[in-house]
């Protein structure tokens, strides 16, 4: 008999029972469908206790890293505390360390969380203006390289949170953020695999984190970044990325502008088209897509048709 903690309640799980059986028999509603460890409808997350590997078969590597499992095929080997997927993000205060302009509409917000803050570059946090108003921002920083956590915030016209961040925050202020969540990040293993990263606007934030994290972890395969905007002024971190490309031979950076003629050093056209023209066959590649939802959704389909496996496509539309 193992003990399963769910939302503060304790349940006894018999040897022959899966966590799904245990919770549903006790009246806890957990969505499920195939009950055979395939469809992933009953996805849950372990907060405490080791996860039996057979309950993670076929899950994306980013979910396995974060202790997600399928409740229907999880027969606990020890006591566990579990949560439904997508819940359990606690809040914590953080101090604003700096607000730095990246271009005319995007700033880098550097924060110092008040307590231990675990995250992976490319995940996101919710940034609270008040108890009921929050927006998600991706983490551009790398835990081992950067002292602060860094977010790229674009000023959205009439944006309740972004306008407040741009106009009212100052260094020294205390704000509230959530724990990091999301599964768009670099997973070590397979260091020779090609990485294709495509972003628009402040969608560069998670990609900038993922690239530096991958390089830090010794990724040796090609890493190709395409960052697109309408015009050159919409891009940012160009010097830093060009410098990184000079230092790391397996990393290439292609800034793209879709309106008018492109100046020297920039590729003309839609960022997705430029990327797929350079790398038309993506079989075996890992793909990261961040930014404008229309671009991200189109890119998911196109990169999948170009040969990338669904399991290797990581997307974050915002």
């Amino acid at each position: 008999m193992k003990r399963i903690i769910f939302e503060g309640q304790s349940y006894d799980c018999k040897e022959t029972e899966s966590i799904l059986d245990c919770l549903t028999t006790n009246g806890v509603p957990v969505p499920s469908s195939c009950k055979a460890g395939v469809c992933q409808t009953c996805l849950m997350r372990a907060l405490q206790g080791s996860v039996p590997p057979e309950s993670q078969r076929g899950l994306k590597s980013t979910l396995v890293e974060r202790n997600y499992f399928m409740a229907c095929s999880c027969y606990p080997v020890e006591d566990m505390e579990v949560a439904l997927s997508g819940t359990g993000a606690g809040k914590m205060p953080a101090t604003v360390v700096a607000l730095e302009s990246l271009n005319s509409e995007i700033i880098c917000v550097k924060l110092h969380p008040s307590g231990p803050f675990e995250y992976r570059s490319g995940q996101y946090v919710n940034f609270f203006r008040d108890a009921s108003t929050a927006r998600s921002y991706s983490l551009a920083s790398v835990p081992k390289l950067d002292d602060c956590i860094e977010l790229h915030v674009r000023k959205v016209p009439q944006g309740q949170v972004s306008t407040w961040i741009h106009e009212s925050l100052s260094p020294g202020d205390t704000v509230e953020i959530s724990e990091a969540s999301g599964d768009c990040f670099y997973v070590p293993g397979n260091p020779d695999q090609g990485l294709l990263l495509i972003g628009t606007g402040s969608g560069l934030a998670p990609l900038y984190g993922i690239i530096r994290d991958a390089l830090l972890q010794g990724h040796s395969g090609p890493i190709r970044l395409y960052h697109g905007s309408l015009i050159v002024a919409g891009l940012y971190l160009m010097e830093e990325l060009r410098q990184l490309a000079r230092e790391c031979l397996n990393f290439t950076y292609t800034p793209c502008v879709s309106e008018g003629a492109a100046p020297e050093g920039f590729s003309p056209g839609i960022v997705l088209d430029v990327a797929l023209k350079d790398t038309p066959r993506l079989s075996g590649w890992r793909v990261y897509l961040c930014g404008n939802p229309a671009m991200v959704n189109a890119a998911k389909k196109k990169t999948f048709f170009a040969g990338a496996s669904m399991r290797d496509i990581h997307a974050d539309p915002f």
């Binding site: 469908s33 195939c34 460890g37 395939v38 992933q40 669904m310």
Partner: peptide, 26 residues
């Protein structure tokens, strides 16, 4: 697309005679 790919996988597992508990009602 991610959710759909999981469903396709469940369908293929079913067609291959693999472990599943789908009912006609599902």
């Amino acid at each position: 697309m991610d959710r759909q790919a999981s469903k396709q996988k469940a369908f293929l597992t079913l067609a291959f005679g693999g472990p599943n508990h789908y009912t006609g009602e599902d």
